[in-house]
Design a binder for these strands. Structure first.
Lengths: 168, 168
DNA sequence: GTCTATAGTTTGATAGAC
DNA sequence: GTCTATCAAACTATAGAC
């Protein structure tokens, strides 16, 4: 609370005029961080084209988002790790639902014989895990700066999923 | 420190007789948590059989480990999120190196035309992300308890990777 | 709406007796 | 090797003046 107050140029006590307690401030900040982040993703998923084309646009869009905002990605993963039931429900309903629904629809078009829920999660996980492991991959064989390039990650993930499901 | 002391039945002061400070205790506990966890994984990867068979054994082994020890999985993901450079290097060298090397070798056999580092990371990410998202997936469409069953996850991931790379 | 001042807790770590 | 007692710092939150 002291750090935040200092960052916005007021004292800690003044912060309590705007938010009832630390939890309220955190929830408001989290809500702000997640607002509008999903729009670009959902648009890519609902764009016109073959399933493979939509997949490519989605992976590209999601990869760019994760690469461009490391703090947001860390916040997302921290919530998955530490968020209590009520906070995760809020997040699921207000932030994830729309893009995830579009992802399952793409999954159904892409792999009608597979469980769409599992495929949708797999698509997201393939992208996210590359960034999640970035700090440790530099110490593992084959890990280069190249592998943190969103274009390289997107190309790899798209190729993997196309091979698995694509008609191409 | 008070909680840990209480859990082992001594006072907080006595804890400082065994560990210099909180960080030392944490590192020792982490080292203990990670020791031997990789053995089963590496064995599965180095077993005899076709690449597809080794893939199936690896995914099965890794999925079972993640499902059987949620605290270990959370510790792993917390280190990826918060671990400083030196701690991640220690982890990479002492815990991840051996299984990861075996994973890249499998990746080379499985997909000679792909970047083995990226493929190895993808194999791990596909498994881990399903568990990482478990608490939020119950609020997303299509999410059922079935999707937290390690057998179901392993089958899905194996099938996805086999389709992408397998000769089958 | 912001300030100073402070209450009330919790935390990591130490001193010194046994 | 464990204890009691305590310190110093950091924390969330509140009281009350302006």
């Amino acid at each position: 609370m002291r750090d935040i107050a200092g960052a916005v140029g007021i004292t800690q006590a003044a912060l309590y005029h705007h938010y009832a307690d630390k939890q309220s401030l955190y929830l408001a900040a989290m809500g702000h961080a997640f607002s509008d982040k999903a729009v670009g993703i959902t648009e890519a998923l609902q764009s016109k084209g073959t399933p493979t084309e939509r997949l490519e646009r989605f992976i590209s869009s999601f990869t760019r988002l994760m690469a461009s905002d490391p703090d947001f990605r860390a916040l997302l993963q921290r919530e998955l790790l530490d968020g209590d039931e009520s906070r995760l429900q809020l997040l699921a309903e207000q932030a994830f639902l729309e893009p995830f629904q579009a992802m399952t629809e793409l999954a159904r078009d892409l792999a009608p014989d597979c469980d769409a829920h599992l495929v949708a999660i797999s698509m997201a996980g393939l992208v996210l895990f590359h960034f999640e492991t970035a700090p440790v991959r530099q110490f593992l064989p084959g890990g280069t700066k190249r592998h943190n390039d969103p274009k390289v990650v997107a190309k790899h993930v798209t190729q993997l999923l196309s091979r698995a499901f694509g008609t191409a």
